[in-house]
Simulated scan of single mutants.
Amino acid sequence: MNTDATDIIAYGVTADERPLLQAAFDGQHRLRCLDLTLDADTVTTAVGHRIVCSGVNDVLDAAVLRALAAGGTRMITQRATGYNNIDLEAARTAGIGVARVSYYSPYAVAEFAWALALAANRRVPRAVTRTRDFDFRLTGLMGRDFHGRTAGILGTGKIGTAFARIAAGFGMRLLGHDVAPSEECLALGMKYAGTDRLFAEADLISLHLPLLPETHHLVDAAALARMKDDAILINTSRGGLIDAQALVETLRAGRLDGVGLDVYEEEAGVFFFDHSLDVMTDDVLARLMTFRNVLVSSHQAYFTRDAVGQIVEATARNVADYLAGRTGENTLVPPAGSS
């Protein structure tokens, strides 16, 4: 072991991710991998670890950050692009640097969003469940062509653009919404519009926006009311973009042809864990799961060998940069004492 090795603790590490992280730091640093979520109840596990490697469902609020700093943590490297779970000002005050993964394969998320859209449209889960029972009827399985219909894409960054390219391949009309139009999306024929028009005209709506105060519950009761009764709604970005209670009421009214959710606003402590023997106390999530036209997956859109490999590589670079006193494109809060 390197005599300059640093103690690193990683939270929310899956069995598939663990060997990749271990290989990235083997022989260089002392890495401890946990499947726990980091929050006020588990923060004591980080005592003595200079670097914390966090995930999207960890709770890094002011209280947790103060506890981390008191325990010797000086750097947080988040294994994700989003960082809405981290209080950056509190980290700066506590003297803790913060970095993220600013880029990984956009195709992983875009392709999974399409997997949800296609499965919802063509009733694939219901069909597979039936055929496993040797029920080969087609009743209730009718979908529709995406060709010639309108895809509404909110957020046309790297992931939204990758989603748009696939939509164009299906021969769909493209409507987009973003503060900065994508030249590539414009070249595909995308027309940019306000959210009111996009919600009203789109047959398929896919969310690829970051979770910010201005995007929180962007899809609320009013937005849902504007959508076509047979629209399909997909969210592989952040759960807080959708008002889940309003979505339940919309579905109860018999509206929306399909919904695919890879994220959920209250997923922390639920997603990534086995609750098959527990009573589900989240009434909204439990209700969503009862609708036959709703597909819920466990925040797995990013989970390909390509994307996770890139995330691990970027995480290792973030650690190396911190130890060398460097900042870069992944830096959100410079480490204390850096320029």
Rank of each mutant, 00 (worst) to 15 (best):
1 M>C: 03
4 D>E: 13
6 T>Q: 06
13 V>A: 08
14 T>V: 03
17 E>W: 12
19 P>M: 05
27 G>K: 10
28 Q>W: 11
29 H>N: 09
35 D>F: 06
36 L>N: 03
44 T>Y: 03
44 T>I: 05
47 V>Q: 07
48 G>K: 10
57 N>L: 14
57 N>P: 03
58 D>V: 07
60 L>V: 03
61 D>M: 02
73 T>C: 09
74 R>L: 04
74 R>M: 02
85 N>E: 09
94 A>K: 06
98 V>M: 12
99 A>W: 08
103 Y>F: 14
106 P>E: 00
108 A>T: 10
110 A>F: 00
111 E>Q: 15
111 E>Y: 01
112 F>K: 04
112 F>M: 02
113 A>P: 09
117 A>L: 10
118 L>S: 03
122 R>W: 07
122 R>Q: 13
123 R>N: 14
125 P>L: 12
142 M>K: 04
145 D>Y: 07
147 H>D: 08
149 R>H: 10
150 T>N: 00
151 A>Q: 08
152 G>C: 14
155 G>E: 09
159 I>H: 01
169 G>R: 05
170 F>N: 02
175 L>Q: 11
178 D>K: 04
181 P>A: 07
182 S>Y: 15
193 A>I: 07
194 G>W: 01
197 R>V: 14
197 R>W: 06
200 A>G: 06
201 E>H: 13
203 D>A: 12
206 S>G: 08
209 L>T: 05
220 D>T: 03
220 D>Y: 06
222 A>P: 04
224 L>Q: 07
225 A>Y: 00
226 R>M: 09
235 N>Y: 00
237 S>D: 05
239 G>T: 14
242 I>V: 08
242 I>R: 01
243 D>V: 06
247 L>D: 08
249 E>I: 02
250 T>H: 02
253 A>T: 02
254 G>F: 00
258 G>N: 00
261 L>S: 07
261 L>Y: 12
262 D>Q: 10
268 A>I: 00
270 V>F: 07
272 F>D: 11
273 F>R: 12
275 H>R: 15
277 L>M: 11
280 M>I: 01
281 T>M: 14
289 M>F: 10
295 L>S: 02
295 L>A: 01
295 L>V: 01
297 S>R: 10
298 S>D: 14
298 S>K: 06
303 F>Q: 12
314 A>N: 15
315 T>A: 12
315 T>C: 12
316 A>I: 02
321 D>L: 04
324 A>T: 13
325 G>P: 12
325 G>E: 13
334 P>Q: 07
